[in-house]
C-alpha cells in the first residue's frame, strides 16, 4: 500500500459492501494523508459513492475497517464527524431558508464558535455576500454549489468528502470551484477525498487517484502513474479502456 505525503487521516482496510447478491465494494484498502487531495474515479457502479457513504456512516460496511484520525469510525462517529464535512451535487440546503440562515443552522449543528464572524468569512470567500438574504430555492445551480461548499467548510474540517462537486456546473464555475478547492487545501491543509467523472478535473486537482472498477481498486498513484499503469494517453483514455472493457463483457483485458 502506497502512503501519501503526510500522516494518514483516513485509513480504510479491506472494506466490503454487499447489497444482497451484489458486491458493490470488494476488499478496498487505501489511506488519505494530511493535506492530500485524493480522487476516487471509476465508471458508474464502481463503488465510489458507496465508499464515501460508508466513510460518513450513512451506510454500514459488510466488513472491513474504517479509521479516521486514528479512531474507529463505528465507535467514535460523532467525534470524527465533528471534524469532517461533506458536499455532494446530489444534496441541497433547505429550500425555504436564506443562504445566511442555512449557514447559521449548520454552524450551530457543528458548535462553531463566533458563528457570525465565521459565516461572514465564508460568504465572502464564496462570493455569496450579496445574496445572503436570498432563499435557497431562488439560487442558480452555481450559487447552490458554492453554498454547499461553504457549508462543507463551516466547521473548519480536517477531512472533506466531495461527491461530484462540480457536476452540473458550467465550465467557468467548475474551474472557479476547482481553484477554490485547491486554495482551501493549500491555506487550511485539509485532506480531500473527491469523486468526479471529469477526468481533466481529476488530473488537475488530485495529488493521487484511486481507480475503481466493479468495487475493486484497480490502480492507485499520482495521475501520471495511473495513466502509465494503464498504458494510456490520459486519465480519460484509461477510464475509457476500463469502461469499454466492461461493456465488451470481458474482465477488463486492458487493465493493468
Amino acid at each position: 500500500m502506497r502512503e501519501g505525503r503526510g500522516a494518514p487521516v483516513v485509513d480504510v482496510a479491506d472494506l466490503v459492501k454487499d447489497f444482497k447478491k451484489l458486491r458493490a465494494v470488494d476488499g478496498v484498502s487505501f489511506t488519505v494523508s494530511e493535506g492530500e487531495i485524493v480522487g476516487l474515479l471509476g465508471p458508474n457502479g464502481a463503488g465510489k459513492t458507496t465508499i464515501i457513504h460508508m466513510l460518513l456512516g450513512l451506510t454500514t460496511p459488510t466488513s472491513g475497517r474504517v479509521r479516521v484520525f486514528g479512531l474507529d469510525f463505528g465507535r467514535h462517529r460523532s467525534r470524527i464527524l465533528q471534524e469532517v464535512n461533506f458536499s455532494s451535487t446530489y444534496t441541497d440546503m433547505p429550500y425555504s431558508l436564506t443562504v445566511q440562515e442555512s449557514l447559521r443552522v449548520f454552524a450551530r449543528l457543528y458548535g462553531v464558535r463566533r458563528r457570525e464572524e465565521k459565516i461572514r468569512g465564508l460568504l465572502e470567500t464564496f462570493g455569496l455576500t450579496d445574496i445572503r438574504r436570498k432563499q435557497v430555492r431562488h439560487l442558480s445551480t452555481g450559487q447552490r454549489t458554492r453554498l454547499n461548499l461553504s457549508k462543507a467548510l463551516v466547521n473548519d474540517p480536517r477531512v472533506l468528502f466531495l461527491d461530484e462537486p462540480t457536476a452540473s456546473l458550467d465550465p467557468d464555475i467548475a474551474d472557479k470551484t476547482r481553484k477554490l478547492l485547491k486554495r482551501v487545501k493549500e491555506e487550511r491543509g485539509i485532506s480531500i477525498l473527491y469523486t468526479s467523472h471529469n477526468m481533466i478535473e481529476m488530473e488537475e486537482v488530485s495529488d493521487r487517484v484511486l481507480f475503481l472498477h466493479r468495487g475493486r481498486l484497480l490502480a492507485e498513484g499520482t495521475p501520471a502513474e495511473v495513466v502509465r499503469s494503464f498504458r494510456a494517453a490520459s486519465l480519460e483514455d484509461a477510464f475509457l479502456k476500463v469502461a469499454r472493457g466492461k461493456d465488451a463483457g470481458g474482465k477488463g483485458t486492458a487493465l493493468p
Binding site: S78, Y90, M93, Y95, L109
Partner: peptide
C-alpha cells in the same frame, strides 16, 4: 419529510448529530 424533500437529509446525518 421536510429534510427529505429538500435533499438536506444527508447534510444533517453526516454531521455529529446523533
Amino acid at each position: 419529510l421536510e429534510d427529505v424533500w429538500a435533499r438536506n437529509f444527508l447534510n444533517i446525518f453526516v454531521s455529529p448529530l446523533t
